[in-house]
Design a binder for these strands. Structure first.
Lengths: 227, 227
DNA sequence: CTTAATAGTTGCATTGTGCCACTAACTTTA
DNA sequence: TAAAGTTAGTGGCACAATGCAACTATTAAG
């Protein structure tokens, strides 16, 4: 359309429609779940999909700030653990043939830090087990695929013993930590090798004198070791 | 600015300036190198940086297509191995305070597949050892950081025995394969354990009767096993 | 006091890995 | 023609990492 002739190429091109999407994972009822929102608008109105929103260059400092703003505005939650997952973009993402570009983030939340049923939300929100969601053909856009990617990334972290502190409170027992890892991976782990690795790599430290009581033998409480 | 009142929210927001950047790695003179382009325009005119270009929603089907078009137009090369690295975006990426969003890709090329000095290129191109580039404060934008990320991703792949076929021709000897891995990692590998893993995991297969001759004892030629 | 349940430790067999030496096959040099 | 040099390819062994299972410890419940 409009070109500058003097300056080399200051051509003006139409830009893609830019959004952020968030795959928020949590352990709910002993299962790895993802937070889904019911879409009220086209496309895919009435379907479930990942929560997300438009990038506002007038409001957001950077991509992470955009994600936190969207989480605050739409979910009324802050995301302490947030990692970029991928970017998806192209002409065919939106059935109306709009060129869309979404930067997808992955967030982890302790189950107790967020209740989708609470509050006067604008939209319907729900936790859904990832095993179901990953193969659900009814999800909006390619969101089933994105959830699968988020789960894979989280599982790889646990396999490498990058512990999922994003799912845990500040204080936890080794049993709780191991159970969380097992629920993420979907398989049992060996107690002795798990603890051996925690010990060798100094990933957690005991909180002197603090014990979790109530169910049978009390358990030592631990906290993460920052590195 | 302009709102639609009838339809829920079809507000028009200004979109970020969207680009793709490419970190193309190769083994040149036994060293892991990255392809840099000299910038002719502001910002950072005269500095070296990663090649890249604007996303053209009128030309590109999706993000990968945009990358291949930029590679074709600016470098006259096609990238057989291409992986998304990350997306970087925010108001402060560009010193002129424009909100910029770049999707960064990582490409691998065999050294012999591309010669930056050949041809009548518009811009200056050069291979630079990644060890130098990663700590070079003079690079445009945050490109030194992006190169470091690309190198880390490539090294992790090799550590996990995801072999760097993107650097190799179709036929190669085990010696060449191991040397390539060593140049990527920057350290020596043990021959017997390397070959043991290749064997156990069935990552390569010998090409019957095909040998590389010329330098002392001939070596069996191998090809990758697709999975 | 016994049983059940979870917390935490220890020993051992199996596997994976790094290190090193060895044989094989070719070229180069004398 | 023979010896030396260089790369290709294999095999043995010590050691570390891992998985498995048994064991003790400490509490609650009956």
């Amino acid at each position: 359309m409009s070109n500058a002739v003097q300056q080399p190429p200051a051509k003006v091109h139409l830009m893609p429609f830019c959004r952020v999407e968030i795959a928020i994972l949590s352990i709910v009822d002993d299962h790895l779940c993802v937070l889904l929102a019911k879409r009220s608008q086209a496309p895919y109105a009435g379907r479930w999909g990942l929560p997300g929103g438009v990038i506002r260059i007038d409001l957001d400092e950077d991509l992470e700030a955009a994600v936190q703003r969207v989480a605050r505005e739409r979910l009324e939650v802050e995301l302490p653990f947030l990692r970029q997952l991928c970017a998806v973009g192209g002409v065919s993402r939106d059935p109306r043939s709009k060129w869309g570009l979404s930067i997808v983030y992955r967030g982890l939340l302790p189950a107790e830090a967020f209740d989708p049923k609470a509050g006067k939300r604008i939209e319907a929100l729900t936790w859904r087990p990832v095993e179901d969601v990953m193969v659900d053909a009814k999800l909006a856009f390619d969101h089933a695929q994105l959830v699968a990617q988020a789960v894979t990334a989280t599982r790889s972290e646990v396999e490498r013993m990058e512990l999922p502190f994003g799912f845990l409170p500040e204080q936890f027992t080794l049993g709780e930590l191991q159970a969380t890892c097992e629920q993420i991976l979907g398989r049992r782990l060996d107690k002795s090798s798990f603890r051996r690795k925690l010990d060798e790599r100094k990933l957690v430290m005991p909180i002197e004198g603090e014990m979790r009581t109530g169910a049978f033998r009390p358990a030592q409480l631990f906290m993460r070791v920052l590195r």
